[in-house]
Structures are given as structure tokens and as C-alpha cells.
Design a protein around this nucleic acid. Structure first.
Length: 282
DNA sequence: AGGGAAACCCGAACGC
DNA sequence: TGCGTTCGGGTTTCCC
């Protein structure tokens, strides 16, 4: 599923070219079509469809899992959710099944939002902060120091896995990268956040950044038939590896439900309690 | 405040 | 083979 590295890969493709398509910077919008009305998260359909005509793409930003298409004086936010994808192509190409929205450019190209499961959404707004303002810190931003991260963990009494996936706590992690980061940091997914000490917090932040950076370097993870081009999935240590042996200790990887989400971990490498405490529960 | 569940969706995987 | 059922996953919303 598109998480931060996949969205960043798409952002770079739109900004600089890539993934089989050209960059779209400077391109002027002539009109747009909504092929499925539910794709629009804002209720100003007619207004914006008029508003964006004649405006050009000046920059493509990313915040967490949101893409922010900066127009001359407007913003198009896109969230791919589960199965969304974006492609840029000339208008001779066929419309595909599950195409939900199309933006046409003056130069004969178009940007297509395709989303089989209809979870993805598009916002047309003046002020992107009205949506993005609720998000927690960007995990790759240096301003998120280990000390601040530990402070934030300490203030919550929550299971670490759902907390890391809470976009208002830290923004951009989904199920896959969370499981992989927790494995890397040797933390059990049910560990209570306030029990995590400064050293563990620093290792966890490092693990998150390592996973995200590796994911970006590998152009994201292509899994579940939805995402094109990346190969980070080849590095997974626990995600989807339940029943297989841990590459570190040889114990069988387990899969449990945590906060309604499939959660993969190694029971040996990720003990529920700190090893030195000798606790046996869990 | 935190956690569980349901809702939104569909294709894939599974069971018979 | 073909049918019906279950599952999963990001996010929001509602309930306890």
C-alpha cells in the first residue's frame, strides 16, 4: 500500500520525471473530469473544476502520505489510501478500469488518478494546512530529535504499533513500515509507549528512518499488485513472513491482530518486556 | 484517553 | 470449473 516512501517516489516522478512518465511542472490545466464522484473529499466540485482551469502546476510537495499539487493559487491534495496510483500519459492512451479522476493539460498530456478500491480521495482547497495541519511530525525531519520523540512516546500510554500508525502522532507510517521498523528496533508491537526508555526511543527513531530511507531508495514496495516499480518488498524481514523463520534468530515469525491490523513480529527478537527485567508474561 | 468495531470498497484468496 | 465467502488495509467515526 502506498506509505510514505511510495508517495515520495510518486512525488519525485511528478516533480522530476520517472516511473515511466514525464515531470508535470509548469504544465497548464485545461480541464478536469471526475469519473467517480466519490473521489472528491471536498464538496465544491463545480467551483473547483472551474477554479483550476488555466492554472499551472508550480510544484509537487509531499506531507506524510499526501501529495500536494501546488497550482498558481490553489492546491490539489491527493491521498492514495489503499490502492490509489497516479500516471502521466498522452491522451491517446486508453482510459483504464478504475480511473477515477483525470486532469488534462495544454500540451496534450493528462494526469490520471486510478484507484480500484475507491478509498483514495482528492481535495481542492486554498489552504492545505486546513487538512495537513492535524498531522504529526515528519519522521525524516531532523527537527524531530530523539529527545522529542521520546517525550512524545512518554506522554502516551498506548500500544506502540497503533501509536506509530496514528498519523497525528507521527505522519507517514503504515502497516508495513511499522512492522519492519519495530522488528529492526527489537520492540514488541504491544509494548506500551510510556515504558520505552530514551535509548530504545532513539533506536526506534533510527529504525523508522532507516526503513523509510531504504524504501525511498528502492522506489517503494511493489506488493499486492497495486504499486509499480519499487523493490523494497524484497527486504522485508517480518511483513508477510509469518510461518517463516526469523533471519536473525531462526524462530518462527508470528502474525497477530493489533488494533484490527495484521501484525508480524519475531517473538524472540521482539520480547514484550525488556530482557534484563526477566518478565515472562506476554 | 484509549481501544474496539464498523464503515468505506474491491480483487484476491480461500473453501467447497 | 465455478460459485459463495472471507480477508485486508488507511482513515474516519462512533461507541464503550
Amino acid at each position: 500500500m502506498p506509505e510514505l516512501p511510495e508517495v515520495e517516489t510518486i512525488r519525485r516522478a511528478l516533480q522530476q520525471g520517472g516511473r515511466g512518465g514525464p515531470a508535470i511542472i509548469g504544465w497548464k490545466i485545461t480541464h478536469a473530469d471526475l469519473l467517480w464522484n466519490g473521489v472528491l473529499a471536498t464538496k465544491n466540485e463545480h467551483e473547483f473544476l472551474q477554479e483550476i482551469i488555466g492554472q499551472s502546476i508550480i510544484r509537487v510537495d509531499r506531507r506524510a502520505k499526501f501529495l500536494d499539487l501546488n497550482l498558481d493559487h490553489y492546491h490539489i491534495l491527493v491521498h492514495l489510501r489503499m490502492s490509489g496510483d497516479i500516471r502521466v500519459e498522452d491522451c491517446q492512451q486508453p482510459i483504464l478500469k478504475h480511473d477515477r479522476a483525470i486532469f488534462y493539460f495544454e500540451n496534450g498530456f493528462r494526469l490520471v488518478f486510478n484507484d480500484p478500491r475507491k478509498f483514495g480521495r482528492i481535495w481542492f482547497i486554498d489552504d492545505p494546512l486546513s487538512i495537513l495541519g492535524r498531522l504529526g511530525p515528519e519522521p525524516l525531519e531532523p527537527s524531530l530529535t530523539p529527545e522529542i520523540f521520546h517525550q512524545r512516546l512518554s506522554k502516551k500510554n498506548r500500544q506502540i504499533k497503533p501509536l506509530l500508525m496514528d498519523q497525528s502522532f507521527i505522519a507517514g507510517l503504515g502497516n508495513i513500515y511499522t512492522d519492519e521498523a519495530l522488528f529492526h528496533a527489537k520492540l514488541h508491537p504491544l509494548r506500551i509507549s510510556s515504558s520505552i526508555n530514551p535509548q530504545e526511543a532513539e533506536l526506534l527513531l533510527q529504525a523508522i528512518r532507516y526503513q523509510l530511507t531504504e524504501g525511498i531508495n528502492r522506489n517503494g514496495s511493489s506488493i499486492d499488485w497495486v504499486y509499480r516499480g519499487g523493490n523494497f518488498q524484497n527486504t522485508f524481514k517480518v511483513y508477510g513472513k509469518n510461518g517463516q523463520k526469523c533471519t536473525i534468530c531462526g524462530k518462527v515469525i508470528e502474525k497477530i491482530q493489533v488494533g484490527q491490523r495484521g501484525t508480524h513480529f519475531c517473538p524472540t527478537c521482539q520480547p514484550i518486556s525488556h530482557p534484563q527485567l526477566g518478565d515472562k508474561e506476554g
